[in-house]
């Protein structure tokens, strides 16, 4: 049976997903609060997998929590920490607990996180993880052995439309689709004209595209991303707009900008939906959606 998220993807409606960041520890109160606040307003909630290589409560545990609280989880899985045995095992477990949406990522280098001396695994890459999911769905593991009890997933992956150079990124994007990705979340986009160019190209593929929206919280944060986050480009006019916000009003300005972008994406039918990342300010997803006219 297709997952609720897969049904939503195929319904043709404008899709909205957001992110849940697992706790650093076992206190799940904040996470639970975010999930309860947002779960009925979005089509699915992504649970991040040791985001930025910082060790946290596992994405699998977070996805279970979303499920238990009545939400629709998207399990993020990176290839950084597990080899192909562990990845497949976790997929079997996810399936057995009704977690049927998976976002496949290569994962950041461990060097960028808080356990810098750890060994990065990368036994598979994101496109191979998508292919592995498709193989499991056929009732076989990656080694070709029969499974006793199958799985059914909605597999997705990511793309960075602002990557420099772009073409190698697009070649990889096409491989992910060829491997069986049904939806693609993009890295944050801010320059919608540029994004439209990407969509002119991406439309030819049988895949749903969700534009990544990262909430800007201040002008310095926007400059920081431009300098330090690969594949993210905040145009100068948006930085100026953030900088011109009255004292204490930057966050609201960021919400306004995010809402405005989502509204434009929806009204102009630029892509199939959005993936909202309100990093550290998850409760603001509601305000962004309100601003975008989605509530």
């Amino acid at each position: 049976m297709p997952s609720a998220f897969k049904k939503a993807l195929n319904s043709g409606k404008f899709i909205v997903t957001c992110e849940v960041a697992p706790a650093k520890g076992t206190n799940l109160e904040k996470m639970t609060h975010h999930i309860e606040l947002i779960k009925d307003k979005v089509d699915a909630m992504n649970v991040t997998d040791h985001q930025s290589s910082v060790m946290r409560f596992p994405s699998l545990g977070g996805a279970l929590l979303v499920k238990e609280l009545g939400g629709e989880p998207i399990l993020q899985m990176t290839c950084r920490d597990r080899n192909r045995l562990a990845l497949q095992a976790d997929l079997l477990f996810a399936s057995s607990r009704g977690i049927n949406n998976v976002l496949c990522l290569t994962g950041d280098s461990v060097m960028l996180g808080d356990h810098k001396e750890a060994k990065g695994v990368f036994d598979l890459d994101s496109s191979q993880l998508v292919a592995a999911i498709k193989k499991l769905e056929k009732g076989k593991d990656m080694a070709g052995n029969e499974l006793d009890g199958g799985v059914s997933f909605c597999a997705g992956a990511i793309v960075t439309p602002e990557a420099k150079p772009l073409e190698p990124q697009l070649i990889k994007f096409e491989k992910k689709i060829e491997a069986g990705a049904e939806f693609i979340q993009t890295q944050a986009v801010y320059d919608l004209d540029n994004f439209k160019k990407f969509m002119d190209y991406a439309r030819q593929f049988p895949v749903k595209i969700l534009a990544g929206i990262i909430l800007l919280t201040s002008a310095p944060m926007a400059r920081f991303m431009n300098k330090n986050v690969a594949g993210v480009f905040v145009p100068q006019d948006l930085i100026d707009e953030m900088a011109a916000a009255p004292k204490g009003g930057a966050l609201n300005k960021g919400i306004e900008i995010a809402g405005r972008m989502i509204r434009k994406i929806k009204e102009e039918n630029i892509c199939d939906g959005v993936h909202i990342m309100a990093i550290g300010k998850e409760e603001k997803v509601i305000d962004i959606m309100a601003e975008a006219g989605l509530l």
Binding site: D125, S127, I158, K172, K175
Partner: peptide, 9 residues
């Protein structure tokens, strides 16, 4: 990686 770049380029 053998299939192309990650998103970190």
């Amino acid at each position: 990686l053998v299939n192309g770049p990650c998103g970190g380029t």
